[in-house]
């Protein structure tokens, strides 16, 4: 498999003494994957995305589809599509004018495809963006982007502020009508549960460093969640769990790479949810998090 994004040792500091948004960040994104970049606020997610899109200068080596985003944004954006959160379409523009514009500047845009997607919605060509609801703006933006034959789609909190119907529909459209083996999607969101089932890979980022870089399949093998009664709690703690939380008087432990045989003795093993895993990784002391790679 070829890498769509290769980032090595990215570093970005805001202000001379400001915080490091990226601190030696390295990762690869392979073609045909759906990668979730997940981290708390201020962890460097948006900075990483901006660097990939050529919107901000960073130190380090960054290669996106064989191009340097810092110097070749124009060429890069022929192959890369991008949706920031829903509020970035200009409010004055008419739907028809937005389609005309993208058609005029983008060599890989298909007007027919875009109009087919829009025909399923309430969005009409003569409407102005300011007359649309947030959900309709997201539908318009998604229709514009899905009509572009791009190799990499970057989504930065694409469903922020949308109600649940639009959020479900958004990801469903992406999976059914857009994603295929030649395309790669990189997505950040706070609503981890919502994208968990569509991701093939996750990247956890904390304080500008990647603290987990794993395929979803591998997560089930490496991490395990076991519900343990009060009697076995000491035995579970001896296996150095990542975290413990209480449910109905029992303890739910999350283990990283613990011996399957010993876990089986404690109780029934389940695959942890991404949100629980995320919380556990983020609450660990910094050094331990780094060592977990």
């Amino acid at each position: 498999m070829s890498a769509v994004i290769t980032a090595e040792n990215l570093r970005k500091q805001y202000g001379r003494k400001g915080t490091l948004a990226l601190d030696g960040t390295s990762f690869r994104v392979e073609a045909g994957r759906i990668v979730g970049l997940i981290g708390p606020n201020g962890a460097g997610k948006t900075t990483a995305l901006k660097a990939i899109l050529g919107l901000t200068d960073v130190e380090g080596r960054l290669d996106v589809l064989g191009l340097d985003p810092r110097r070749e944004r124009e060429r890069l954006m022929e192959q890369v599509s991008f949706i920031a959160d829903v509020a970035v379409l200009p409010r004055w523009i008419r739907v028809r004018e937005a389609i005309d514009y993208v058609e005029g500047v983008h060599p890989r845009f298909s007007r027919a495809t875009c109009e087919r997607f829009l025909a399923r919605t309430e969005v009409k060509p003569a409407m102005r963006v300011r007359e649309l609801s947030k959900g309709m703006i997201a539908q318009l933006h998604l229709a514009l982007v899905m009509a572009i034959d791009a190799r990499l789609l970057v989504l930065d909190e694409p469903t922020l502020g949308l109600d649940i119907l639009y959020r479900k529909q958004f990801y469903q459209s992406l999976l059914e009508d857009y994603f295929d083996a030649d395309r790669t999607i990189l997505v950040t969101t706070h609503q981890v549960e919502e994208i968990e089932h569509i991701l093939t890979d996750v990247l956890f980022i904390r304080h500008g460093r990647i603290v987990l870089d794993a395929a979803m399949d591998a997560i089930g093998e490496r991490f395990a969640e076991v519900m343990v009664g009060p009697g076995e709690r000491e035995a579970a703690l001896a296996l150095a769990p990542l975290s413990e939380r209480q449910v109905f008087g029992k303890s739910v432990f999350l283990f990283d790479g613990a011996d399957p045989m010993r876990l089986a003795a404690l109780g029934e093993r389940r695959q942890p949810g991404l949100a629980d895993l995320f919380v556990a990784m983020m609450q660990r002391p910094e050094t331990a998090a780094g060592a977990a790679r």
Binding site: L53, L55, R73, E74, R75, L76, M77, E78, S81, F82, I83, A84, A87, V88, L89, P90, R91, Y101, V102, V105, H106, P107, H141
Partner: peptide, 11 residues
């Protein structure tokens, strides 16, 4: 913030 939209296109 529409600059993010304009910059998402190859111009």
């Amino acid at each position: 913030r529409s600059v993010l939209f304009w910059k998402s296109l190859p111009v």
